[in-house]
Design a protein around this nucleic acid. Structure first.
Ligand SMILES: [Zn+2]
Ligand SMILES: [Zn+2]
Ligand SMILES: [Zn+2]
Ligand SMILES: [Zn+2]
Lengths: 141, 141
DNA sequence: GCCGGTATTGTTATGTTATATCATTCGACC
DNA sequence: GGTCGAATGATATAACATAACAATACCGGC
């Protein structure tokens, strides 16, 4: 999947990059860079330095395979890396999972505010919601 | 202003806290914690350690006088600290200024998505927009 | 005024996240 | 096989943030 997209785009999903992406898939949760470093280290049975992982993350983010959760300093796989999208992250403060949702309406409102009220030219949006997921929210009485 | 609100709320705007708030007001821009530390150090002509500033920031954020910009690791004064509000930050990548805008509609859409699509209980929202402000955006031809 | 408890600040150390820099290796192409 | 640019390795350090405990300030009751 990511391999295909990389081929199409003429960029290389090298071993290091693929490994980081796999780790994030397996984790399923937003994961910190240093946690990735540790896991990689164990798997490869040799030292992995921060730049290795940060460079891989930079690539994966640029290619749209991974998002950074700014409010957590954590990284998570994108659920639809094949197209540009305006997404919202819902991050559970209890169990740590995050859910990515697409909602053009939010992006449109933001862009509208930017244009009409500020004359601001939008290049990117960070929308991250804190709270508790369904599993971690006790049912209403 | 902040002094009044603190009195109402029965909390103290001590010297350290007031100084940090003043610095942020003067700066007018999102400012990093370590920049605040340096400036404080110079003004007071004595060493200022990180916990001093981080504790002040924590207080100011709790009281709603200051916001943290997660995507910048920077802190900025709130433009309407007297009431709870759902705000959006527009951050210029060029000159660094940020504009805070209130828009309930965005918050409502987010909450709607959270409820209807995820069963997610929202406790907080981070909405930060990257781009260029009016001054830094060349006029259309 | 003094005492005792609580909030705040000082101090030191350390944890966590991220990047700069330069050397080395890899891989495609000629 | 030699050349060039991309990618990785390796070391160091920058930037951001908190833990832990000691010292001090503040405020009530006495
Ligand atoms: Zn995505
Ligand atoms: Zn949860
Ligand atoms: Zn505000
Ligand atoms: Zn600007």
């Amino acid at each position: 999947m990511a391999t295909l997209l990389c081929n199409e785009r003429g960029v290389k999903l090298t071993a290091a990059r693929r490994q980081v992406l796999e780790l994030l898939w397996e984790s399923g949760c937003p994961t910190g860079a240093y946690e990735l470093i540790e896991t990689l280290q164990q798997r490869n049975a040799r030292p992995v330095n921060p730049p290795t992982v940060y460079r891989a993350l930079e690539f994966l983010i640029t290619q749209g395979f991974v998002h950074k959760l700014e409010s957590r300093n954590a990284y998570v796989v994108c659920i639809h890396p094949d197209r540009r999208h305006a997404c919202i992250f819902f991050i559970c403060a209890d169990c740590g999972v995050s859910a990515e949702l697409e909602d053009e309406r939010v992006a449109d409102l933001i862009d509208e505010d930017a244009n009409d009220r500020l004359g601001f030219h939008v290049t990117g949006r960070v929308v991250e919601v804190q709270g508790t997921c369904r599993q971690c929210t006790p049912a209403e009485p």
